[in-house]
Amino acid sequence: MSRLNEANTILAKEIIARYPKARSATIPLLHLSQQQNGYVTEEAMAHVAELVGATPAEVQGTATFYEMFKFRPVGKYLVNICGTMSCQLMGSEALLHHAEEVLGVKPGGTTADGMFTLEHAECQAACTEAPNMQVNYRHCHRMTNEAFDQLIADLREGKRDADIPAHGTLARIRQQIPAEKAVGPVSPDDPARPVWTPAPEVK
């Protein structure tokens, strides 16, 4: 089953209904499919295409542009080591080499037990906390080899389950818009001036 399941299809329709054009929901729906399956399958992309009114090729074209979407299974934990300038200046290459040794894989590789996929990542917006890395996009600041070993051990033992969900789950809290409060999407074809905006003065 790699189409969106029933619950996620309902959620997908709620998300689509927020946008003036359904296709705007493409990326959020791809995230939803990745949350369900751990990666983005062709069937899921075809389903997203049905839901947003695009062709499967259009959805695939969008999906393949973005680095967070994976098209084959990855580890339960995506270990992304930042290699951009601030981190490089503070020793990220040594950290990456250490990670390669500990995990026994090169960037792009997944450990045999399916637990970890290692990636050499770009700037993670934690530049003062270098070298920085992320596990499933959760930040780990000022990393050392010892801290890395501890982190990997904790992840293996399930000690970080509370704050680091499995790959695919991004935010665990979703926006909820109560029906009675929602304004609803504003179509680009609706040229009405917002009611709170006064008409221009006639000169």
Binding site: E67, M68, E122, C123, L170, I177, P178, A182, V183
Partner: peptide, 25 residues
């Protein structure tokens, strides 16, 4: 009542939609 219909009882109404990116500088 800060976001959505008739904000703070006025005729100002607007939705704020949280949107997710997916990794592209």
């Amino acid at each position: 009542g800060y976001v959505g219909k008739n904000i703070l009882g006025t005729d100002f109404s607007v939705d704020i939609i949280l949107h997710w990116g997916a990794g592209a500088y």
